[in-house]
Nucleic acid binder design. Structure first.
Length: 632
RNA sequence: GCCCAUGUAGCUCAGUCGGUAGAGCACUUCCUUGGUAAGGAAGUGGUCGCCGGUUCGACUCCGGCCGUGGGCUCCA
């Protein structure tokens, strides 16, 4: 007899009982035994603690999706015997599996593979874990011509190799897995893509299939509905549809043309940003868009970043279109001897930069080749570092919250302790920087994730990633130390002691780039901007031609009060005008018919909410005005 | 940059087994003056992404390029 702790209760079992028998839980797809994830079929020989792992948990989903990847690989091997499986992991939303095939998969293949998967799932094929002695594993996979598996085995130190068998399909795999293919009830293959073996572009391009599976049809439907929702929020569709921006093939990829409405949104963001930054003690500067190549050699960008820079010749000398604002700010700092009394110096710029991003990474306004950073550099003394970092975090959070974001994931990126030689700067600098980042994070009460080895070579940093209305993560704010530029530009300040000291340099942005940020806002709000950011806040519409005079009068009063307003006097029916205004997601619709004109009122309608009733002009202005303030 | 897919009117999409194109919406005009998510009619609008090749003839087949999308990679 052994004693097993299940659900906080001890039970006696015969040694050799399986986890499945102990749990007797229909929803369990795997088990956790003394903290280790194992198959339900595992035999328990000693006293232990057993917990069920269900699809509802993150690790449960990972196991389930990984089993989905195996099922797909089985189907692929049956339909395409020449396909060599490589790796097929679970990802946050499903799984993928990469195959080496003579001809890449097409979308048509997906349907066939999906059908075969459904067939295999119905058969409820048992998924069996086996240990192969190393030699046997090598023999087995070489007989099958699965050279990629052999390559993986080569890197495994173990004497015995873990494999999973389901019918005719055997895969090298650590597991665990669901007990049989029948647990997978709903299957959807989503897309095919090319991917390099081991992510290295010098290696062979493999054919990748993305898919997702669920224990019930309902969950798949829900998931697909979420994907539909994301499509409706796509800024690449909404932007042009709402007359915010456009792209033009004849102008070049990754270059945004901002229409009046988009330019208005940018201006509103910038006005708010400027107000907050001036209040927080920043000074705004402006620097040129081009410069001599040697400036970029001095900053070091030229060596590291050459590929991404646009360069051109001027009088036999190479110039560059600025890809970063930093060197300009360094030059301004250096124009006079700075005293410790002058610090901290916070220098900010709406800096438009151009980078020759590789064509494949361009994405709407979110990843472009010309963009405007809300850039700033803080020059300070070691003693000021912590307060400055805290100030940056506070400012970032305040602003991001004003834009409607409430949830954040924060990363603290520090050196890789195993490769300290990769980094510039002294240990003292890194220690002080890291300590100040941590205490600033703690002061602001933020939970954060410590990412070892994620720091860039010139300093540690904090990244604030926001979660939008659909739960998607976007990286915007960053606050990073720079131990490189201070040296390269010989930046110092005169200390109290009358000696030169090197400055601490902090590079930071709140929004990242305004192009990207507007794109994120469009996605977040699905194009329905809050009143304070809406390019058009109100539209006045007449019911018949007789009220045009009154409607114009209403518009005049709104304009005088600073409301961004349009008028619709077309001879269409009011229902049509309302439909269009709703489609354009204009926050307030003011209907001015004969009844309203007679009483000098308007009938107010809110986007997405419908008719609010009739209000006087003053009451209408008060209502819009209240919504037009920056929140927070 | 690489793999795959894709490009027909402002938008959404039909279509042509190779014989130079069509719908709905939008737009313009006219009728309509109607009360909260699309009233009616007529009309304008396309070098079928661009360049080259094959062909008597190319939107259609082939090649190259550009753009876009899904990924990979990159993100000093």
């Amino acid at each position: 007899m052994i004693e097993i702790l299940v659900d906080e209760q001890k039970h006696g079992f015969e040694a050799g009982v399986t986890a499945a028998e102990v749990l007797a839980d229909k929803d369990a797809i795997a088990a956790r035994v003394d903290g280790r994830l194992v198959d339900l079929s595992v035999r328990l020989e000693e006293s232990c603690t057993v917990e069920p792992v269900r699809f509802g948990s993150e690790e449960g989903r990972k196991i389930f999706w990984h089993s989905g990847a195996h099922l797909m690989a089985q189907a692929v091997k049956q339909l395409f015997p020449e396909a060599k499986p490589t790796i097929g992991p679970a990802i946050p939303d499903g799984f993928y599996y990469d195959f080496d095939v003579p001809k890449p998969f097409t979308d048509e293949d997906l349907g066939r593979i999906e059908e075969r998967m459904k067939k295999l799932a119905k058969k409820q094929i048992p998924i069996i874990h086996k240990w192969f002695p190393r030699e046997q594993a090598i023999k087995f996979f070489s007989e099958r011509g699965e050279t990629y598996k052999l390559e993986i085995i080569k890197d495994l130190p173990d004497k015995r190799i873990s494999v999973y068998e389901q019918g005719d399909f055997v895969d090298l795999c650590r597991g665990p897995h669901v007990p049989n293919t029948g647990r997978i009830k709903a299957i959807k293959l989503l897309s095919v893509a090319g991917a390099y073996w081991r992510g290295d572009e010098n290696n062979r391009m493999l054919s990748r299939i993305y898919g997702i599976v669920f224990p019930t049809e309902g969950q798949l439907k829900e998931h697909l509905a979420r994907l539909e929702q994301a499509k409706l929020h796509d800024h690449r569709k909404l932007g042009p549809a709402l007359d915010i921006f456009s792209f033009h093939e004849e102008a070049g990829a990754g270059l945004v043309f901002w229409h009046p409405k988009g330019a208005t949104i940018r201006r509103l963001i910038q006005n708010y940003w400027n107000r907050e930054h001036l209040a927080a003690g920043y000074q705004l500067v402006v620097t040129p868009h081009i410069g001599r190549g040697r400036l970029w050699q001095q900053s070091g960008h030229y060596d590291h970043y050459r590929e991404d820079m646009y360069t051109f010749m001027v009088d036999n000398e190479e110039y560059v279109l600025k890809p970063m604002n930093c060197p300009g700010h360094m030059l301004i700092y250096r124009t006079k001897v700075r005293s410790y009394r002058d610090l901290p110096l916070r220098m900010a710029e709406w800096g438009t930069v151009y980078r020759n991003e590789r064509s494949g990474v361009l994405h709407g306004t979110i990843r472009v080749r010309g963009f405007t950073q809300d850039d700033a550099h803080i020059f300070c003394t070691p003693g000021q570092v912590e307060d400055e970092i805290f100030g940056v975090i506070k400012l970032s959070l305040k602003m991001l919250r004003a834009f409607g974001f409430t949830d954040f994931n924060v990363d603290l990126s520090v050196r890789d302790p195993k490769h300290l030689d990769k980094y510039l700067g002294t240990d003292e600098q890194w220690d002080l920087a890291e300590k100040s980042l941590i205490s600033a994070l703690e002061r602001s009460g933020l939970k954060y994730h410590r990412a070892e080895g994620e720091a860039v070579f010139y300093g540690p940093k904090i990244d604030i990633k926001l979660l939008d209305s659909l739960g998607r993560e976007w990286q915007c704010s960053t606050c990073q130390f720079d131990f490189n530029l201070g040296d390269r530009f010989k930046l110092y300040y005169m200390g109290e002691d009358g000696k030169h000291h090197s400055v601490y340099l902090v590079h930071r942005t709140v929004l990242g780039s305004i192009e990207r940020f507007v794109g994120i806002l469009v996605e977040h709000y699905g194009g329905a901007f809050p009143t304070w950011l809406a390019p058009v806040q109100a539209r006045v519409m007449t019911v018949t031609d007789k009220e045009i005079g009154y409607a114009r009068n209403v518009v005049r009063q709104l304009v005088a009060a600073g409301v961004r307003v349009e008028i619709d006097t077309r001879s269409d029916k009011i229902a049509y005008k309302v439909a269009e205004a709703e489609r354009l997601k204009i926050p307030y619709m003011l209907v001015t018919g004969a009844r309203e004109a007679q009483k000098q009122v308007v009938s107010l309608r809110r986007h997405g909410k419908g008719n609010l009733g009739t209000f006087s002009i003053e009451a209408t202005l008060a209502q819009i005005g209240e919504q037009a303030n920056v929140p927070g």
